[in-house]
């Protein structure tokens, strides 16, 4: 919206920002048009009314509430840091444990009894002794024989 020259002068006057020359011009415009002068007075009153109505403070103890909130956020930032650090350390620990388990599994496979070729890999990994139904029966039989011999 393009402002008229009169309007610009009025706005400058409201801001109390007229040069001496502009002030003289506005004065002569007011003399020529009382309506313009009335308009200026209405705008000036409106401006003063708005300025009068301003709120200039929050509720009492505002600074206390800001500081309390800030402390809360700082604590929360600390908690976040702690949580992130905890998660990070957990990942490192989990990786290390996984690596150890893999190493142990590999060791078990390579050190397993090669004579029992039919032993499943998983049993080798967790280092179970070679075991089958026949082997189990043989083991039990041997155990009984051994016990009987000892009893006799």
């Amino acid at each position: 919206m393009k402002l008229t020259y009169e309007r610009e002068l009025i706005l400058k006057a409201l801001e109390d920002n007229l040069s001496a020359e502009e002030s003289r011009r506005l004065q002569s415009l007011f003399e020529a048009s009382p309506k313009l002068k009335e308009e200026y007075n209405d705008l000036l009153n409106t401006q003063q009314m708005i300025a009068w109505a301003k709120y200039d403070s929050f509720k009492p103890y505002f600074a206390d509430r800001v500081l309390k909130r800030l402390r809360g956020e700082t604590d929360s930032i600390f908690s976040d840091d702690f949580y992130i650090s905890l998660v990070h350390n957990f990942y490192r620990l989990a990786f290390t444990v996984l690596l150890l388990v893999m190493l142990l599994g590999s060791y078990n496979i390579f050190s397993a009894d090669n004579t029992s070729n039919d032993q499943p890999v998983i049993e080798s990994v967790i280092a179970l002794p070679p075991m089958s139904v026949i082997n189990t029966n043989t083991t039990i039989l041997n155990y009984k024989v051994f016990n009987n011999e000892n009893t006799n």
Binding site: L3, D42, L43, T46
Partner: peptide
């Protein structure tokens, strides 16, 4: 300036009875 001019006009209309 343009916004100020329009705003103060509207406020004047709304507040004139009280002024």
């Amino acid at each position: 300036l343009s916004r100020y001019s329009r705003a103060i006009d509207k406020l004047k209309i709304l507040l004139t009875p009280y002024i």
